Computed example of a mutant assay.
Amino acid sequence: MYRWQAMNVIAEHGVVGIIRAETAQQAGLRARTCLDSGLSVLEISLTTPDAPELIKELRREYPSALLGAGTVLDAASAWTAIAAGAGFLVSPSLHEDVVSTGHRYGAAVIPGTDTPGEIVRALSAGADAIKLFPASRWTPESMRDVLAALPQAPLVPTGGVSLENAPDWIAAGAVAVGMGSALSRGSTDEATARISDLRTRIRTARG
Protein backbone atom coordinates (compact mmCIF):
# COMPACT_ATOMS: atom_id res chain seq x y z
CA MET A 1 0.00 0.00 0.00
CA TYR A 2 1.29 3.46 -0.93
CA ARG A 3 1.41 6.29 1.61
CA TRP A 4 -1.38 8.16 -0.14
CA GLN A 5 -3.54 5.04 -0.08
CA ALA A 6 -3.00 4.66 3.66
CA MET A 7 -4.00 8.27 4.21
CA ASN A 8 -7.09 7.81 2.03
CA VAL A 9 -8.17 4.86 4.19
CA ILE A 10 -7.60 6.86 7.39
CA ALA A 11 -9.57 9.82 6.03
CA GLU A 12 -12.39 7.57 4.80
CA HIS A 13 -12.71 5.87 8.19
CA GLY A 14 -12.43 9.13 10.11
CA VAL A 15 -11.20 7.36 13.24
CA VAL A 16 -7.98 5.57 14.17
CA GLY A 17 -8.32 3.07 16.98
CA ILE A 18 -5.37 3.27 19.38
CA ILE A 19 -4.35 0.04 21.08
CA ARG A 20 -2.22 0.38 24.19
CA ALA A 21 -2.09 -2.14 27.05
CA GLU A 22 0.11 -3.48 29.81
CA THR A 23 0.40 -6.87 28.14
CA ALA A 24 0.45 -8.13 24.57
CA GLN A 25 -2.50 -10.39 25.39
CA GLN A 26 -4.66 -7.47 26.53
CA ALA A 27 -3.65 -5.48 23.46
CA GLY A 28 -4.46 -8.40 21.19
CA LEU A 29 -7.93 -8.79 22.69
CA ARG A 30 -8.68 -5.08 22.27
CA ALA A 31 -7.33 -5.00 18.73
CA ARG A 32 -9.31 -8.05 17.64
CA THR A 33 -12.48 -6.64 19.21
CA CYS A 34 -12.10 -3.47 17.13
CA LEU A 35 -11.22 -5.35 13.94
CA ASP A 36 -14.08 -7.81 14.37
CA SER A 37 -16.40 -4.86 14.99
CA GLY A 38 -15.65 -3.20 11.65
CA LEU A 39 -12.92 -0.74 12.59
CA SER A 40 -10.06 -1.67 10.27
CA VAL A 41 -7.62 1.18 11.01
CA LEU A 42 -5.61 0.51 14.17
CA GLU A 43 -2.50 2.01 15.72
CA ILE A 44 -0.58 -0.37 17.99
CA SER A 45 1.46 1.63 20.50
CA LEU A 46 5.08 0.56 20.82
CA THR A 47 4.72 1.07 24.57
CA THR A 48 2.83 -2.24 24.54
CA PRO A 49 5.06 -5.27 25.18
CA ASP A 50 5.88 -7.21 22.01
CA ALA A 51 4.04 -4.65 19.87
CA PRO A 52 5.91 -5.52 16.61
CA GLU A 53 5.04 -9.19 17.01
CA LEU A 54 1.39 -8.27 17.60
CA ILE A 55 1.40 -6.20 14.40
CA LYS A 56 2.75 -9.24 12.53
CA GLU A 57 0.05 -11.50 13.99
CA LEU A 58 -2.74 -9.07 13.14
CA ARG A 59 -1.42 -8.60 9.61
CA ARG A 60 -1.66 -12.35 9.06
CA GLU A 61 -5.13 -12.60 10.59
CA TYR A 62 -6.61 -9.43 9.05
CA PRO A 63 -4.81 -8.86 5.72
CA SER A 64 -7.25 -6.15 4.60
CA ALA A 65 -6.80 -4.04 7.75
CA LEU A 66 -4.59 -0.96 7.86
CA LEU A 67 -2.28 -1.38 10.84
CA GLY A 68 0.09 1.26 12.15
CA ALA A 69 2.49 1.77 15.02
CA GLY A 70 2.25 4.49 17.66
CA THR A 71 4.76 6.16 19.98
CA VAL A 72 7.47 5.86 17.31
CA LEU A 73 10.32 8.03 18.58
CA ASP A 74 13.34 7.19 16.44
CA ALA A 75 14.48 5.71 13.15
CA ALA A 76 15.22 2.29 14.62
CA SER A 77 11.70 1.98 16.03
CA ALA A 78 10.28 3.20 12.72
CA TRP A 79 12.11 0.51 10.77
CA THR A 80 11.14 -2.21 13.27
CA ALA A 81 7.47 -1.25 12.98
CA ILE A 82 7.54 -1.12 9.17
CA ALA A 83 9.30 -4.50 9.00
CA ALA A 84 6.51 -5.91 11.18
CA GLY A 85 3.89 -4.67 8.71
CA ALA A 86 2.96 -1.15 9.88
CA GLY A 87 1.57 0.96 7.06
CA PHE A 88 1.68 4.19 9.03
CA LEU A 89 3.65 5.57 11.96
CA VAL A 90 2.42 7.92 14.68
CA SER A 91 4.50 9.89 17.18
CA PRO A 92 3.56 12.13 20.12
CA SER A 93 6.05 14.74 18.84
CA LEU A 94 7.99 15.61 15.70
CA HIS A 95 11.03 13.46 14.92
CA GLU A 96 12.37 14.14 11.44
CA ASP A 97 14.31 10.87 11.34
CA VAL A 98 11.01 9.02 11.82
CA VAL A 99 9.48 10.94 8.92
CA SER A 100 12.43 10.25 6.61
CA THR A 101 12.67 6.58 7.58
CA GLY A 102 8.95 6.05 7.18
CA HIS A 103 8.94 7.65 3.76
CA ARG A 104 12.05 5.78 2.65
CA TYR A 105 10.22 2.50 3.20
CA GLY A 106 6.75 3.57 2.10
CA ALA A 107 4.92 4.24 5.36
CA ALA A 108 2.79 7.31 6.02
CA VAL A 109 3.96 9.33 9.04
CA ILE A 110 1.78 11.32 11.46
CA PRO A 111 3.93 13.24 13.97
CA GLY A 112 2.50 15.00 17.02
CA THR A 113 2.29 18.76 17.49
CA ASP A 114 0.76 21.15 20.02
CA THR A 115 1.24 24.64 18.53
CA PRO A 116 0.80 26.32 15.14
CA GLY A 117 4.58 26.66 14.92
CA GLU A 118 5.01 22.91 15.42
CA ILE A 119 2.33 22.25 12.81
CA VAL A 120 4.28 24.31 10.26
CA ARG A 121 7.51 22.49 11.12
CA ALA A 122 5.77 19.15 10.68
CA LEU A 123 4.46 20.24 7.28
CA SER A 124 7.96 21.34 6.30
CA ALA A 125 9.33 17.95 7.37
CA GLY A 126 6.89 16.22 5.01
CA ALA A 127 4.31 14.85 7.45
CA ASP A 128 1.46 13.01 5.73
CA ALA A 129 -0.91 14.19 8.47
CA ILE A 130 -0.39 15.83 11.84
CA LYS A 131 -1.48 14.51 15.22
CA LEU A 132 -2.88 17.35 17.33
CA PHE A 133 -1.78 16.18 20.76
CA PRO A 134 -3.08 16.31 23.34
CA ALA A 135 -6.41 17.34 21.92
CA SER A 136 -7.61 17.99 25.49
CA ARG A 137 -5.64 21.27 25.37
CA TRP A 138 -7.69 22.33 22.37
CA THR A 139 -11.33 22.58 21.36
CA PRO A 140 -12.87 21.98 17.94
CA GLU A 141 -13.37 25.74 17.72
CA SER A 142 -9.73 26.59 18.46
CA MET A 143 -8.59 23.98 15.93
CA ARG A 144 -10.91 25.56 13.37
CA ASP A 145 -9.20 28.91 14.02
CA VAL A 146 -5.80 27.36 13.31
CA LEU A 147 -7.10 25.75 10.13
CA ALA A 148 -8.34 29.14 8.96
CA ALA A 149 -4.69 30.21 8.88
CA LEU A 150 -3.27 26.79 7.89
CA PRO A 151 -5.96 25.16 5.73
CA GLN A 152 -3.35 22.83 4.21
CA ALA A 153 -2.73 21.09 7.55
CA PRO A 154 -4.36 17.62 7.75
CA LEU A 155 -4.99 17.35 11.49
CA VAL A 156 -5.80 14.25 13.55
CA PRO A 157 -6.80 15.28 17.11
CA THR A 158 -5.83 12.63 19.65
CA GLY A 159 -5.86 12.47 23.44
CA GLY A 160 -9.09 13.64 24.98
CA VAL A 161 -11.37 12.88 22.02
CA SER A 162 -14.55 11.15 23.22
CA LEU A 163 -17.33 9.20 21.54
CA GLU A 164 -19.57 12.19 22.14
CA ASN A 165 -17.36 14.94 20.71
CA ALA A 166 -15.52 13.07 17.93
CA PRO A 167 -17.97 14.30 15.25
CA ASP A 168 -17.44 17.88 16.45
CA TRP A 169 -13.73 17.60 15.63
CA ILE A 170 -14.54 16.25 12.18
CA ALA A 171 -17.08 19.02 11.57
CA ALA A 172 -14.40 21.56 12.56
CA GLY A 173 -12.07 20.26 9.85
CA ALA A 174 -10.12 17.31 11.25
CA VAL A 175 -9.17 14.59 8.77
CA ALA A 176 -9.74 11.92 11.42
CA VAL A 177 -9.56 11.47 15.18
CA GLY A 178 -7.52 9.09 17.30
CA MET A 179 -9.34 7.20 20.06
CA GLY A 180 -8.37 4.52 22.57
CA SER A 181 -10.11 2.08 24.89
CA ALA A 182 -13.53 3.74 24.59
CA LEU A 183 -13.90 1.93 21.27
CA SER A 184 -13.09 -1.61 22.38
CA ARG A 185 -14.67 -1.99 25.81
CA GLY A 186 -17.40 -4.56 26.34
CA SER A 187 -18.41 -7.41 24.05
CA THR A 188 -17.86 -7.54 20.31
CA ASP A 189 -21.58 -6.87 19.77
CA GLU A 190 -21.40 -3.78 21.99
CA ALA A 191 -18.24 -2.56 20.27
CA THR A 192 -19.76 -3.16 16.84
CA ALA A 193 -22.80 -1.05 17.68
CA ARG A 194 -20.61 1.68 19.19
CA ILE A 195 -18.19 1.82 16.26
CA SER A 196 -20.98 1.70 13.66
CA ASP A 197 -22.79 4.57 15.38
CA LEU A 198 -19.59 6.61 15.64
CA ARG A 199 -18.69 6.18 11.98
CA THR A 200 -22.23 7.13 10.97
CA ARG A 201 -22.07 10.31 13.03
CA ILE A 202 -18.62 11.11 11.58
CA ARG A 203 -19.97 10.76 8.03
CA THR A 204 -22.88 13.02 8.94
CA ALA A 205 -20.51 15.59 10.45
CA ARG A 206 -18.66 15.83 7.13
CA GLY A 207 -21.90 16.84 5.43
Rank of each mutant, 00 (worst) to 15 (best):
V120H: 04
V109Q: 08
I10N: 00
A174H: 03
T188G: 09
A129F: 01
I10E: 00
T113M: 06
A11P: 05
E43T: 09
Q152E: 15
R194K: 05
I130E: 02
P111E: 04
V41C: 03
V156F: 00
R30C: 03
T33V: 14
N8Q: 15
G159W: 09
L35W: 10
S40I: 10
L89F: 00
G126A: 05
V99A: 02
V146N: 00
T115V: 07
A69C: 01
D36S: 13
S40R: 14
L46W: 04
P154F: 05
H95W: 07
A166T: 14
C34S: 12
A11F: 03
Y2E: 15
M7Y: 11
G180P: 05
V72H: 06
A84M: 15
S77N: 11
W79G: 00
E57I: 12
G85I: 09
P134S: 08
L42Q: 10
Y62R: 11
T23P: 07
A6V: 14
P63G: 14
T115E: 08
D197A: 15
A78I: 01
G106D: 07
G106L: 01
S37V: 14
W138K: 05
V72C: 00
A127F: 02
I19V: 13
T188Q: 12
A148N: 04
A122L: 03
S124Y: 01
W4L: 06
L66H: 10
L54N: 06
P151T: 12
S100V: 10
T71G: 02
G87E: 10
R59E: 13
H13Q: 14
G173I: 07
G106T: 10
V15Q: 09
G70I: 05
S136N: 12
A149R: 07
T188Y: 04
S124K: 15
R203G: 01
R3T: 12
G112K: 03
A108C: 04
S184W: 13
I202G: 02
S64F: 01
E96H: 05
S142V: 14
I44D: 03
E61L: 08
W79L: 14
Q152K: 08
N8C: 09
I170N: 03
D74Q: 10
G68Q: 09
S136A: 15
W138S: 08
I110P: 06
A86H: 06
P63W: 08
A191W: 10
R3I: 00
S196N: 15
T204C: 00
V16R: 02
V175I: 13
M143W: 02
G14I: 09
E141N: 08
A31Y: 11
F88V: 09
T47H: 13
T188V: 15
G106A: 05
K56C: 00
